[in-house]
Design a protein around this nucleic acid. Structure first.
Lengths: 198, 198
DNA sequence: AAATGACGTTAACAAATGTTAATTTCTACG
DNA sequence: CGTAGAAATTAACATTTGTTAACGTCATTT
């Protein structure tokens, strides 16, 4: 309970929307979770309302389609939040799977517990809005990219904005997050390189 | 100030997370806004932090790309919220334009005023989380569609889930929201019809 | 009634992507 | 060190989409 939470603590304090003293009950409800590479954090059908802050590692959220293929919704790494959005927002079993792609360390809180803490400490409410806004901003950026950019341009943008992730994750996950097949991503990369060398 | 707000009022009361009596200061800060078809609600570069509930009509949010083309991010109609997300979440001038496609009636509140109301009435805070979650859920659905479905499948899904909108809006806006050109959407429709008749 | 302009459709061609399968490269494990 | 399995690349072909332009339709205006 509440161990290596320095980074999260300093993040929340930078918000300076909540007095640090008020945060004690929040951290008392958290726990540290460690996952090995390849380990599943949330399964399809899970009903737990998990919210977590990534201290280290990468989590992939994906759906299994009718034909059995997997579609990656997003990748999150250290410094970001992940939430089981089907269970938290929609209050239904998760259609999505969350799996660690590297050894991962998270600070987890159950959303039901969080709501209890917020009920008893209303001054912490801005924190909920804060992470909801963070996730909404990222989601809208993603939609904007799908609507305004070609697959190649989306890949270049991803390289530019999150190049670290691209090099830590197998290409097939990058491809499905961009909405294309691994074969097509390979051709896109070839095209970029051939243009770059000329 | 607070005129025909029946639908919004009943919506908020169904949440029963906030006592109806507490909502008076909220509605006191709202105002009714009417737009004619074609009228712009938010311009590129605007800094106002507008949040609105649509009682009637359709609003299109779109970006103007480098080549001058427009890309529709989303369409919202009666019963939905729209928010100037660049100004509210990112605290920067809006890169997006919000324009009415039909004569539109909205209940508007400035987000700065809303935050003032929430500061003085902390029991209203769940309302902020509520509409943030609504918009996040819609955004994630949109991403899911881009990642798991082909353009044709996305169009069929849109017909199924929001067929009313499709018939109220020019096809070119539907096309750009699906991430394809109007020419391609026309071919998709032809393909669907030819398959349907056989 | 004629003219204008926006919108959707169609055509023709280029370019990109999907699909399947073979091949190569890389990694992990014995 | 060698092997097995996963991942990435490449090839070949079908399908889809982008692009440009022409054409038809419809509504509005003059």
């Amino acid at each position: 309970m509440a161990v290596s939470i320095e980074t999260l603590q300093s993040l929340l304090q930078q918000l300076n929307t909540v007095p640090p003293a008020d945060m004690a009950p929040l951290f008392a409800a958290t726990r540290e979770v460690k996952l090995e590479a390849g380990e599943t954090y949330i399964r399809e059908g899970d009903t737990a309302r998990k919210l977590a802050y990534l201290e280290k590692g990468i989590i992939r959220a994906y759906a299994v389609m009718n034909n059995g293929d997997e579609a990656t919704l997003f990748l999150r790494c250290e410094g970001q939040f992940i939430a089981s959005h089907d269970t938290i927002i929609r209050q239904r079993p998760s259609r999505f799977i969350y799996r660690a792609l590297e050894d991962t360390v998270m600070v987890e809180i159950d959303y039901d517990k969080l709501e209890g803490v917020l009920r008893e400490n209303p001054r912490l409410e801005p924190l909920r809005s804060y992470f909801l806004q963070l996730m909404l901003a990222e989601a809208l950026d993603s939609i904007e990219a799908f609507v305004t950019l070609s697959p190649e341009e989306r890949y270049l943008q991803l390289l530019d904005s999150r190049g670290d992730i691209v090099n830590r994750v197998p290409d097939k996950y990058i491809a499905s997050m961009l909405g294309v097949t691994p074969v097509s991503l390979s051709r896109i990369r070839k095209r970029i390189h051939s243009r770059g060398k000329q």
